[in-house]
Design a protein around this nucleic acid. Structure first.
Lengths: 208, 208
DNA sequence: TGAGTAATTATGCAAGCGTATAATTACTTA
DNA sequence: TAAGTAATTATACGCTTGCATAATTACTCA
């Protein structure tokens, strides 16, 4: 007779986060269809039945995973701000360069983002999260743009329009960097982003 | 005995497009997992077996649907371009404006695009289509940028970098227009895109 | 230290999936 | 109008899926 598999008990929180992490890993690697209960359990080092013990349905687990992902992205983006220099121009340049360089550009992150984007049009909760994340990022960018322009003695610029455009530019570059990583040389996107922002704002941003 | 279901023959092209349209509708409404062979056949008014007759695998059908979607979007951006004057600046402005206006900007299209983006990193057929349509759009944009710069007597510009940046800008605006349609006033994105391109190229593009 | 219990594993099931293949039918054409 | 054929339907198979439930085991604490 086969031995019954030995196990150790783990706290509820540890098991929940392990299951959520396994779910995110699998979605990033193989898309939502790869995140089956059996695959998730295997990755998390448990057996499938345990999922039912912590999440009523698989849908609940996926929803919890999305929430974890989004709050994680927001916090990560906020944390990077503290490392940037104080000079407004250099600060903006650093922010722009970060946004299109590893580890921000990352196929895993892009894949997960695409998975959640797909839900945005038909899921109100996802739309709300997306809205908050998008506006949060854009507002930060707008603040830096305003500071940089002010430092250069420029007034009466439409910083909202510039932030929308700048945010779109970074989004587009970030996506293509993740989707077609082989199409761009190392640092090419960073250089393109800095030059594009320089022209967009009519300011000379320093290369980083 | 149940009657065997009566049917009419339709041309190969009609059936293929019907199946592709059904696939796109289902993915847009319920995500990729909603596009099962049975659901697709039902929506297209045929029985599941017929799919096999026109597409070797379901994967082939999905890839064909993706190609139809993306080339359709590119065509829509280029549409009515021929009506515009030959002036390179006006042509570029029209192209840019179209790319961020209905019907190109469309929540359904964005949802479909997000769904396909998930498949791109790991499905060779999807990646090929994505590369081709991405580069097709970008090359078109690059050609127009080059024409506009040449007409303005400008040389030695890095049109590749400008096209990458311009393409990213349009992509980003297009995505947000589809994901958060209520956040932008009518024509706001169009105006932002034109102004951003004017600065990016250091050319005065006419509002359309 | 031993009984109780919650965590975990193990097993099984019904439904849905993609796909292979056979049977039929609408249409073409000679 | 009859024969041939390509289009279409019908059926079935093997897998995988999410989930329910029973069996077992690690841990707790009186």
């Amino acid at each position: 007779m086969n031995q019954r598999r030995p196990f150790q008990r783990a706290g509820e929180e540890a098991r929940r986060t392990a299951l959520i992490e396994a779910t995110l890993d699998l979605i990033a690697e193989g898309g939502p269809q790869a995140a089956t209960v059996r695959a998730i359990a295997l990755r998390a080092g448990v057996t499938p039945g345990l999922i039912r013990h912590y999440f009523a349905t698989k849908e609940d687990l996926v929803a919890a995973a999305h929430e974890t992902l989004m709050t994680g992205l927001t916090e990560a983006s906020a944390a990077r701000l503290d490392d940037l220099p104080d000079d407004p121009l250099a600060r903006l340049a650093g922010f722009v360069a970060n946004a299109v360089s590893p580890p921000v550009t990352d196929p895993r992150a892009v894949a997960l983002w695409a998975a959640s984007m797909q839900l945005v049009p038909r899921d109100a909760a996802m739309r709300k999260v997306h809205e908050a994340t998008y506006l949060g990022f854009r507002d930060r960018l707008q603040g830096m743009i305003a500071d940089a322009l002010t430092a250069a003695g420029r007034r009466d610029e439409d910083t909202r329009a510039l932030a929308i455009a700048g945010n779109a530019l970074l989004d587009g570059l970030w996506i293509e960097a993740g989707a077609l990583p082989d199409h761009f040389q190392a640092n090419e996107l960073k250089s393109i982003a800095i030059k594009a922002f320089s022209r967009l704002l009519d300011l000379k941003l320093p290369e980083v």
